[in-house]
Protein backbone atom coordinates (compact mmCIF):
# COMPACT_ATOMS: atom_id res chain seq x y z
CA UNK A 1 0.00 0.00 0.00
CA UNK A 2 0.94 3.65 -0.18
CA UNK A 3 1.86 4.77 3.31
CA UNK A 4 1.10 8.29 4.48
CA UNK A 5 1.02 10.19 7.73
CA UNK A 6 -1.46 12.79 8.94
CA UNK A 7 -0.29 16.36 8.59
CA UNK A 8 -0.30 18.44 11.79
CA UNK A 9 -3.72 20.07 12.26
CA UNK A 10 -2.04 23.47 12.55
CA UNK A 11 -0.64 23.15 9.04
CA UNK A 12 -4.09 22.35 7.64
CA UNK A 13 -5.60 25.29 9.51
CA UNK A 14 -3.08 27.58 7.80
CA UNK A 15 -4.00 26.13 4.41
CA UNK A 16 -7.75 26.64 4.71
CA UNK A 17 -8.24 29.55 7.09
CA UNK A 18 -9.28 32.04 4.41
CA UNK A 19 -12.18 29.86 3.23
CA UNK A 20 -15.74 29.77 4.56
CA UNK A 21 -16.59 26.20 3.60
CA UNK A 22 -14.33 23.21 3.23
CA UNK A 23 -14.88 19.56 2.39
CA UNK A 24 -12.65 17.02 4.10
CA UNK A 25 -12.34 14.24 1.55
CA UNK A 26 -11.08 10.82 2.67
CA UNK A 27 -10.07 7.75 0.72
CA UNK A 28 -11.05 4.19 1.51
CA UNK A 29 -7.90 2.58 0.18
CA UNK A 30 -4.31 2.67 1.38
CA UNK A 31 -4.62 5.70 3.65
CA UNK A 32 -7.46 3.96 5.47
CA UNK A 33 -5.28 0.94 6.15
CA UNK A 34 -2.41 3.08 7.38
CA UNK A 35 -4.86 5.14 9.44
CA UNK A 36 -3.95 8.48 7.92
CA UNK A 37 -6.86 9.43 5.70
CA UNK A 38 -9.83 7.08 6.00
CA UNK A 39 -13.36 7.83 7.14
CA UNK A 40 -12.36 7.90 10.78
CA UNK A 41 -9.45 10.28 10.27
CA UNK A 42 -11.75 12.48 8.21
CA UNK A 43 -14.18 12.58 11.14
CA UNK A 44 -11.53 13.44 13.70
CA UNK A 45 -9.93 16.14 11.56
CA UNK A 46 -13.27 17.68 10.62
CA UNK A 47 -14.36 17.73 14.25
CA UNK A 48 -11.10 19.34 15.34
CA UNK A 49 -11.31 21.97 12.61
CA UNK A 50 -14.93 22.79 13.42
CA UNK A 51 -14.01 23.30 17.05
CA UNK A 52 -11.01 25.42 16.15
CA UNK A 53 -12.84 27.80 13.86
CA UNK A 54 -15.94 28.00 16.04
CA UNK A 55 -13.74 28.85 19.00
CA UNK A 56 -12.18 31.60 16.87
CA UNK A 57 -15.68 32.95 16.22
CA UNK A 58 -15.61 31.86 12.61
CA UNK A 59 -18.73 30.55 10.91
CA UNK A 60 -16.97 27.92 8.91
CA UNK A 61 -18.70 24.99 7.29
CA UNK A 62 -16.63 21.84 7.43
CA UNK A 63 -18.17 18.70 5.98
CA UNK A 64 -16.96 15.15 5.64
CA UNK A 65 -17.00 12.70 2.77
CA UNK A 66 -14.97 9.61 1.99
CA UNK A 67 -14.61 8.08 -1.44
CA UNK A 68 -13.87 4.50 -2.36
CA UNK A 69 -10.74 5.78 -4.11
CA UNK A 70 -9.45 9.13 -5.26
CA UNK A 71 -7.28 7.67 -8.02
CA UNK A 72 -10.11 6.61 -10.33
CA UNK A 73 -12.44 8.80 -12.37
CA UNK A 74 -15.55 6.83 -11.49
CA UNK A 75 -15.28 7.40 -7.76
CA UNK A 76 -14.18 11.00 -8.03
CA UNK A 77 -17.27 11.67 -10.14
CA UNK A 78 -19.37 11.02 -7.03
CA UNK A 79 -18.58 14.43 -5.61
CA UNK A 80 -19.32 16.35 -8.80
CA UNK A 81 -22.71 17.48 -7.51
CA UNK A 82 -21.56 18.49 -4.06
CA UNK A 83 -18.13 20.02 -4.61
CA UNK A 84 -19.47 23.39 -5.75
CA UNK A 85 -20.83 24.03 -2.27
CA UNK A 86 -17.30 24.37 -0.94
CA UNK A 87 -14.56 26.95 -1.26
CA UNK A 88 -11.92 24.27 -0.98
CA UNK A 89 -11.20 20.62 -0.38
CA UNK A 90 -8.73 19.00 2.01
CA UNK A 91 -7.92 15.60 0.56
CA UNK A 92 -6.68 12.97 2.97
CA UNK A 93 -5.72 10.68 0.10
CA UNK A 94 -2.10 10.10 -0.83
CA UNK A 95 -0.38 12.56 -3.14
CA UNK A 96 -1.88 10.66 -6.06
CA UNK A 97 -5.44 11.21 -4.89
CA UNK A 98 -4.85 14.86 -4.07
CA UNK A 99 -3.55 15.48 -7.56
CA UNK A 100 -6.22 13.51 -9.35
CA UNK A 101 -8.92 15.35 -7.44
CA UNK A 102 -7.26 18.64 -8.37
CA UNK A 103 -7.03 17.60 -12.02
CA UNK A 104 -10.69 16.71 -12.13
CA UNK A 105 -12.01 19.78 -10.32
CA UNK A 106 -9.81 22.44 -11.80
CA UNK A 107 -11.74 25.37 -10.32
CA UNK A 108 -11.43 24.17 -6.75
CA UNK A 109 -8.37 24.54 -4.52
CA UNK A 110 -7.36 21.12 -3.18
CA UNK A 111 -5.09 20.90 -0.12
CA UNK A 112 -3.14 17.87 1.03
CA UNK A 113 -4.09 16.59 4.47
CA UNK A 114 -1.38 13.95 4.70
CA UNK A 115 2.30 13.58 3.94
CA UNK A 116 2.79 10.68 1.54
CA UNK A 117 5.81 8.52 2.21
CA UNK A 118 6.28 5.22 0.44
CA UNK A 119 5.01 1.91 -0.81
CA UNK A 120 5.22 -0.36 2.15
CA UNK A 121 3.78 -2.89 4.53
CA UNK A 122 2.14 -2.96 7.94
CA UNK A 123 4.86 -4.56 10.03
CA UNK A 124 2.71 -4.44 13.13
CA UNK A 125 -0.15 -2.24 14.28
CA UNK A 126 1.05 1.33 13.95
CA UNK A 127 4.35 0.44 12.25
CA UNK A 128 4.76 0.70 8.50
CA UNK A 129 7.98 0.17 6.59
CA UNK A 130 9.11 0.71 3.03
CA UNK A 131 9.47 -2.08 0.51
CA UNK A 132 9.35 -0.64 -2.99
CA UNK A 133 10.36 2.54 -4.79
CA UNK A 134 8.83 1.64 -8.13
CA UNK A 135 12.06 1.64 -10.15
CA UNK A 136 10.22 0.03 -13.06
CA UNK A 137 12.68 -2.81 -13.56
CA UNK A 138 12.32 -5.38 -10.79
CA UNK A 139 15.49 -7.20 -9.76
CA UNK A 140 14.07 -9.15 -6.82
CA UNK A 141 14.69 -12.44 -8.61
CA UNK A 142 18.43 -12.01 -8.17
CA UNK A 143 18.40 -10.57 -4.67
CA UNK A 144 16.53 -13.24 -2.77
CA UNK A 145 13.28 -11.30 -2.87
CA UNK A 146 14.68 -8.37 -0.90
CA UNK A 147 15.07 -5.07 -2.67
CA UNK A 148 18.40 -3.23 -2.38
CA UNK A 149 16.95 -0.16 -4.08
CA UNK A 150 14.42 0.45 -1.33
CA UNK A 151 16.10 -1.23 1.62
CA UNK A 152 19.68 0.02 1.29
CA UNK A 153 20.19 3.68 2.21
CA UNK A 154 22.60 3.94 -0.73
CA UNK A 155 20.59 1.67 -3.04
CA UNK A 156 23.81 -0.26 -3.64
CA UNK A 157 23.31 -3.09 -6.08
CA UNK A 158 26.50 -4.86 -5.03
CA UNK A 159 26.40 -4.51 -1.27
CA UNK A 160 26.77 -4.34 1.61
CA UNK A 161 28.85 -1.21 2.07
CA UNK A 162 31.43 -0.94 4.83
CA UNK A 163 28.92 0.64 7.17
CA UNK A 164 26.91 -2.52 7.81
CA UNK A 165 27.33 -3.44 11.47
CA UNK A 166 25.75 -6.40 13.26
CA UNK A 167 23.02 -6.52 10.67
CA UNK A 168 22.17 -2.84 10.84
CA UNK A 169 22.62 0.12 8.55
CA UNK A 170 25.17 2.83 9.30
CA UNK A 171 22.49 5.51 9.20
CA UNK A 172 20.52 4.13 12.15
CA UNK A 173 20.75 1.10 14.40
CA UNK A 174 16.98 0.60 14.03
CA UNK A 175 17.27 0.10 10.28
CA UNK A 176 18.17 -3.36 9.09
CA UNK A 177 20.98 -3.57 6.54
CA UNK A 178 19.19 -4.56 3.34
CA UNK A 179 22.23 -6.43 2.13
CA UNK A 180 22.54 -8.40 5.34
CA UNK A 181 18.92 -9.47 4.75
CA UNK A 182 19.73 -10.41 1.17
CA UNK A 183 22.73 -12.46 2.21
CA UNK A 184 20.79 -14.21 5.00
CA UNK A 185 18.04 -15.00 2.57
CA UNK A 186 20.35 -16.26 -0.19
CA UNK A 187 21.99 -18.46 2.41
CA UNK A 188 18.64 -19.82 3.58
CA UNK A 189 17.81 -20.61 -0.03
CA UNK A 190 21.15 -22.34 -0.52
CA UNK A 191 22.05 -19.78 -3.17
CA UNK A 192 24.86 -17.82 -1.54
CA UNK A 193 27.09 -18.58 -4.52
CA UNK A 194 24.92 -16.18 -6.52
CA UNK A 195 26.17 -13.36 -4.31
CA UNK A 196 29.37 -13.23 -6.35
CA UNK A 197 27.60 -12.40 -9.58
CA UNK A 198 28.12 -8.71 -10.25
CA UNK A 199 24.90 -6.78 -10.60
CA UNK A 200 25.19 -4.78 -13.82
CA UNK A 201 24.88 -1.01 -13.94
CA UNK A 202 21.18 -0.33 -13.65
CA UNK A 203 19.07 1.28 -16.29
CA UNK A 204 17.35 4.00 -14.29
CA UNK A 205 15.38 5.30 -17.25
CA UNK A 206 12.35 3.34 -16.01
CA UNK A 207 12.77 4.98 -12.60
CA UNK A 208 11.87 8.51 -11.55
CA UNK A 209 15.02 9.58 -13.39
CA UNK A 210 13.39 8.92 -16.75
CA UNK A 211 10.70 11.52 -16.14
CA UNK A 212 6.99 11.04 -15.39
CA UNK A 213 6.11 7.49 -16.25
CA UNK A 214 3.21 5.92 -18.04
CA UNK A 215 1.99 2.37 -18.39
CA UNK A 216 -0.18 1.65 -21.42
CA UNK A 217 -1.93 -1.67 -21.85
CA UNK A 218 -3.52 -1.78 -25.25
CA UNK A 219 -5.08 -5.16 -24.56
CA UNK A 220 -7.21 -3.73 -21.78
CA UNK A 221 -7.76 -0.25 -23.16
CA UNK A 222 -11.33 0.67 -24.02
Amino acid sequence: MIVAEKKPIQEIIEEIKTHDSVLILGCNECVTVCEAGGKKEVGVLASALRMYFLNKGRDMRIDEHTLERQCDHEYLDEIREMIDQYDGVVSLACGVGVQFTAEKYTQKPIYPGVNTFFMGVTESRGVWTERCQGCGQCILASTGGICPVSRCAKRILNGPCGGSTTGNCEINKDVACGWQLIIDRLKALGRLDEYEELAPIKDWSTDRAGGPRKVVREDVQS
Binding site: P8, I9, Q10, A48, L49, M51, Y52, N55, K56
Partner: peptide, 8 residues
Amino acid sequence: RILDTVGI
Protein backbone atom coordinates in the same frame (compact mmCIF):
# COMPACT_ATOMS: atom_id res chain seq x y z
CA ARG B 1 -3.29 16.77 22.15
CA ILE B 2 -5.90 17.69 19.55
CA LEU B 3 -7.94 19.69 22.06
CA ASP B 4 -4.81 21.63 22.98
CA THR B 5 -4.12 22.32 19.31
CA VAL B 6 -7.60 23.62 18.59
CA GLY B 7 -7.74 25.77 21.71
CA ILE B 8 -10.29 23.85 23.76
